[in-house]
């Protein structure tokens, strides 16, 4: 992968790491506020959960980028060398197809959430941006898989 893309992925992950630190601070801060000052932050859990949804889906893009998704590699690893390449291409194409499909479905859902103007229960924030991370992440994962499939195909047979 080109160096600028690696840098971009790294910076993106650092940003998500800061989100995690903020979530920890908010949850622990809520304990302090309630226990010491008898004044719980009523929206703390809701915002922390939004943070977790962000981490999950945007983090999944980086996971896909690094190719470190959790999968059962038992059978494919046992295949002969020559079969590995077509299998890898087919895997990437299936991932691209299914994530692309669901990203499209999900996009339709998010536009409807936006149109209805749905808000969160406690903080009363619009929720469509949180929903939108799912189609964004799935589209990015589909794109990464597609690029990977093309690169594998173009790579010379002998390595």
């Amino acid at each position: 992968m080109p160096p600028f893309a690696t840098k971009l992925a790294h910076g993106f992950t650092l940003l998500l790491a800061l989100v995690l630190l903020a979530m920890v601070g908010l949850s622990a801060g809520n304990v302090v506020a309630r226990y010491l000052f008898n004044a719980a932050i009523l929206w703390a859990d809701e915002i922390a959960v939004f943070g977790m949804i962000l981490l999950t889906w945007l983090g999944a893009i980086v996971v896909a980028w690094r190719g470190s998704d959790i999968r059962m590699d038992l059978l494919v690893a046992a295949l002969p060398r020559g079969a590995q390449r077509p299998v890898a291409v087919l895997q990437d194409l299936v991932v691209a197809g299914s994530c692309g499909w669901v990203a499209w479905l999900s996009y339709g859902y998010v536009t409807r959430v936006h149109r209805i103007g749905m808000t969160s229960d406690s903080a009363r924030l619009p929720v469509w941006p949180v929903h939108a991370v799912i189609p964004v992440a799935l589209a990015a994962i589909a794109l990464i898989a597609l690029v990977r499939a093309l690169r594998t195909l173009r790579r010379p047979q002998t390595k």
Binding site: L16, A17, L55, L58, A60, V63
Partner: peptide
């Protein structure tokens, strides 16, 4: 540590 946590949680939570 936070970076590893993010990647690791993402792997689990998408499942």
């Amino acid at each position: 540590c936070a970076v590893s946590t993010v990647l690791f949680s993402a792997q689990i939570l998408v499942i």
